[in-house]
Nucleic acid binder design. Structure first.
Lengths: 136, 136
DNA sequence: CTGCATCCTACTGGATACTG
DNA sequence: CAGTATCCAGTAGGATGCAG
């Protein structure tokens, strides 16, 4: 085995980026992938379109209000989602969120990985069992 | 915009997996993506083949011995890399590591995302500047 | 060479209560 | 409805030293 020639073509850029200690930005963006809620939010916005804060909360079972706001802020800061405050107070405040073009790209590039993990969940469980035969 | 039909095809599985609170395993696997060193190790092993502990350490500038061992253990636990202890003490201990088929799959599915992040680094920087015009 | 033990800091995720 | 403020536990990442 080894990487395909297409994958190998990425060598220079990736190698440089991985060893670039100062450029933490790329790693911070990548960290959205491992984040507890980011993928879910991007995914919901990608499939449902524009949603309000409360809609998102309903769409993400288990998320707390604090984590929703915090995650939205992080995604907004990196340009992955857009936040539109309608500046209205009555009858209710209204703020809604949607994917930006950048966010769509992120989602598109994360879905294959997530799908692969789902498809191979059995493999991971087996590996875990092999690793710790007794517990769990 | 919206997801392509191909992407949409993942809807059911992804939606289920995202809302499956109990199955933390998938999220733990996904967390390798956001991990500080995991991608680098998978990448080095994918491009260089089998390497010893000390080789990996040299190949990953900035990693400490502790983090290398810890990350290797995590990757091994999830079946992404294989650890081969030659059981030799003299002249030196010898343990080497290599990607498993599962690890190759993980790497293959992570590279496009990483490449995309590299290619769009400018966009992220711009978004950050827009988000905090003053600082940094 | 490989790897463990110790100690430390910062951040993540969360529970809860409060505000306009 | 949208969001902030507190407080808290657990973990990630790291510095350093020791061991077989």
């Amino acid at each position: 085995m080894q990487l395909s020639s297409q994958q190998i073509a990425s060598f220079a850029a990736i190698c440089e980026a991985l060893s670039d200690e100062d450029d933490s930005l790329k790693r911070e963006v990548l960290s959205h992938a491992g984040n507890r809620w980011s993928l879910g939010i991007l995914y919901i916005l990608g499939t449902q379109g524009t949603l309000r804060h409360a809609d998102l909360r309903r769409a993400m079972p288990g998320i707390t209000q604090r984590m929703l706001t915090r995650t939205l802020r992080q995604l907004e800061r990196d340009g992955l989602i857009g936040r539109f405050d309608h500046q209205q107070k009555f009858p209710h405040p209204r703020v809604d969120y949607s994917l930006t073009a950048l966010g769509e790209g992120m989602l598109m590039n994360m879905l294959p990985l997530w799908r692969w993990i789902i498809d191979n969940a059995g493999e991971f469980r087996a590996a875990r069992r092999r690793a710790m035969p007794t517990a769990e």
